[in-house]
Design a protein around this nucleic acid. Structure first.
Lengths: 337, 337
DNA sequence: GTGAAAGCGCTAACAT
DNA sequence: ATGTTAGCGCTTTCAC
């Protein structure tokens, strides 16, 4: 229980406590001889410097917060895993801050000095969190989700380009009745994908009916429900573009439940290319945006920001590409392409 | 930058620093009047107590470490998500300690006093970590993976019962050439499943050929490779029991690649019932062991242990049940049942 | 190169 | 009910 402290080590090594602190950090101003003696004493006592003492003195914690949605939603592990790994490579430990994604997160845990910085993956368009963190001087990076005001470090996908690619794909395949199965209307990532998609369709003279347009949570259930609602209409869509892969998974579930064959009866396209999408049992056609790179570069951005709090904000927009797999095809009864 | 401290609040409220500390924690021995004054001052200054100061004084951090494997492996999010949630409900934040799963983890981060306790999900049979943590007085709970020595808190599945249930299922369906696609031989969870399965088969006079028995990492690739190896043999198995669902996923992948229909050509059964297994596109027959309950009760066990370091160790063994989905059936050319 | 001493921001024991 | 004081274990001036 009674932890070994640097004082105990000092006593055993016959030096002062300050010297122990210096020697163990290989700091200039300690002779090799004492360093060896101190190290030996530390090893003998099984001494490990206590983080709380160190943090209080240095104001550094080597901890970085990741504000994340439910890890049960497979999108988040896909994003969080590479971040954790990258942070670890840089000597940081990740602290998970669960966010229910509804109203604004209580920022106390982010500003109590227990974190050197924060990665934000659940920001809504109207969130006051970035401003609050800014006031407090907490280094932060927005990941995947963006905000409209542009002076925040961010690592996001090129949502507009991705949505356009999907529009082109579907139109080229001959689809005309196309649905959009979207995420929350307050999430900028979703809005960007939605608006770019709508604009691309309208540019080709395809009107979008409100009945083929759904906003809701980024989860399986909304995917299932909205898809079922689409397909139950008099003129069901021949293709459904889902604002992310989790929604698409829900759509595929619902299709199977309704005995609809994909892509023969209906085309389903996702966005993100989460690892699951590549499983041959799922084989989802989607927009790839290299989540790994997005996550890693977000971590790098934050580490950079911590080192240089004054530098101008940087926003990394990662390119997207169509990942053509097995859930897209021509509309039923229109077997061209 | 220059953080607001309790001294600033004290000055503004016209009380001593200690009173601020007390008032803000609603501790007995502060009048409602001063409490109000202090709260007002704190709010005005935007004061948030600093965790490092608090930790140093109380030796409490409200942080719990979760030693976890790659979150890219879908088993871990299934385990980690409910833990994080449960910990959060109890006022703890989760710190992720990535473990490469190879040799023993460097314990420094677990014993530097920055964690009130640790949840261990990657323990190997011969790991010295539990003993080390024990010496240091670090509260800990083993999750999913067990060790042979029995004086550790643990929350695990009933691996023996689960493996037996699978053996019964396969034998009853008429399978005789059965393969076991296992995890690492140093992981007790895997060994228990393997040994119980082997024993159950032998009890029914089914010998197990070494060529139908594979140990390897708990990942998709091993699932794919081992399954392909099994099926390439002269007398391929008619059923493959995978020691966990991720391996089974790999097996299903390999089956599809080899144009083998499941379960018509070969039966595949998993273990764990991770959420993905329930997707209708995957529809994996598996052994369910309520990962949520396992994870949550592990968190509870740890919180309990922290409150009462002296109590005897408790091991929770969670019951298993067969989850019959779509990947099992009779052996090919033997259409009974 | 090393020691003495101060201080990081909080809690807690002890007065009053 | 509140103020005073002494730490918690480290890092970091500042002397020598």
């Amino acid at each position: 229980m009674s932890q070994v402290t640097s004082i105990d080590v000092a006593r055993l090594a016959g030096v002062s406590q300050a010297t122990v602190s210096r020697a163990l950090r290989d700091i200039r101003g300690t002779s090799e001889a004492t360093r060896a003696r101190v190290r030996a004493a530390a090893r003998e006592l099984g001494y490990v410097p206590q983080q709380s003492g160190r943090s209080l003195a240095t104001r550094l914690t080597n901890r970085i917060g990741i504000v994340t949605g439910e890890l049960a939603n497979p999108f988040y592990p896909a994003l969080v895993a590479p971040m954790v790994e990258r942070l670890h490579e840089h000597g940081y430990l990740a602290v998970l801050i669960p966010d229910e994604d509804l109203d604004d997160l209580d920022p106390v845990q982010l500003i109590d000095g227990s974190l050197d910085g924060v990665l934000l993956t659940t920001i809504h368009q109207d969130s006051r969190l970035p401003a609050e963190l800014s006031r407090r001087g907490v280094p932060r990076v927005l990941v995947n989700r963006d905000v409209s005001l542009g002076d925040e470090d961010a690592s996001v996908a090129d949502n507009v380009a991705g949505a356009r690619q999907v529009a082109r794909l579907l139109l080229a395949a001959g689809h005309r009745r196309i649905a959009f199965l979207g995420g929350p209307p307050t999430v900028r990532t979703n809005v960007q994908r939605a608006e770019a998609f709508r604009a691309a369709l309208e540019r080709h003279g395809i009107g979008v009916s409100a009945r083929l347009w759904s906003y809701g949570p980024f989860d399986l259930d909304h995917g299932r429900l909205a898809f079922a609602r689409f397909m139950a209409q008099d003129a069901p869509p021949t293709a459904v573009f889902c604002a992310n892969d989790v929604l698409a998974l829900g759509a595929l579930e619902a299709a199977r439940a309704a005995r609809l064959a994909v892509p023969r009866d209906v085309t389903v396209v996702g966005f993100d290319d989460i690892p699951m999408a590549a499983l041959s049992m799922i084989d989802l056609t989607t927009v790839g945006c290299d989540l790994d790179a997005m996550a890693r570069s977000a971590a790098d951005l934050l580490i950079d920001r911590i080192a240089d709090p004054g530098r101008p904000a940087r926003r990394l927009v990662h390119p997207t590409r169509l990942v053509l797999r097995g859930t897209h095809g021509p509309p039923p009864g229109n077997p061209d392409i």
